[in-house]
């Protein structure tokens, strides 16, 4: 069974200079799409990937990452809406490039679809009451 998931990888500094992504492709047959990368030599690295492949390969790949010390988070956890601050104005819906923020045409409330969020963070500063928060 094929699977496709978006994950956030945190690399400790000792792993930053290793070809880990290469191994995911070569040894685990995974197709990957890099959504965001922030790697500073000798410091922590952060990578947001969309990983696709056979279920078995995916699980083995994740196991490999965990074993070598990469911390893994699923993407939905990282961009959060602070519901106490969101006023449902809707300024974000034209800013979000993936359709993760949409307006309900009936209630005119803003819906946040976490599964569509690629953590590009464009909404964070475009939100007037600053309701969108990054938790990496």
């Amino acid at each position: 069974m094929a699977i496709s998931k978006r994950v956030v990888l945190h690399f400790p500094s000792r792993l930053v200079e290793q070809p880990i992504i290469y191994k995911l492709v070569k040894d685990y047959n995974l197709v990957l799409n890099i959504l965001k990368a922030s790697v500073t030599p000798k410091e922590e690295g952060l990578l947001i990937l969309e990983l696709s492949g056979a279920r078995e390969d995916y699980d083995r790949g994740i196991q490999y990452l965990t074993d070598i010390g990469v911390r893994i988070q699923s993407l939905g956890q990282n961009i959060m809406r602070n519901d106490a601050r969101c006023t449902h104005c809707g300024a974000c819906v034209v800013i979000c490039p993936t359709g993760a923020l949409t307006l309900d045409p009936k209630t005119r409330m803003v819906n946040f679809h976490e599964d569509k969020c690629t953590a590009c963070e464009l909404c964070v500063l475009a939100c007037p009451p600053r309701a969108m928060e990054v938790h990496f």
Partner: peptide, 21 residues
């Protein structure tokens, strides 16, 4: 409606004023 036609282009719209509020 979420989009308007302006200069022959369909443009998405957003509000700064909260209608639910």
């Amino acid at each position: 409606s979420g989009k308007i036609l302006i200069q022959e282009k369909e443009v998405p719209t957003a509000s700064l004023s909260s209608y639910p509020r």
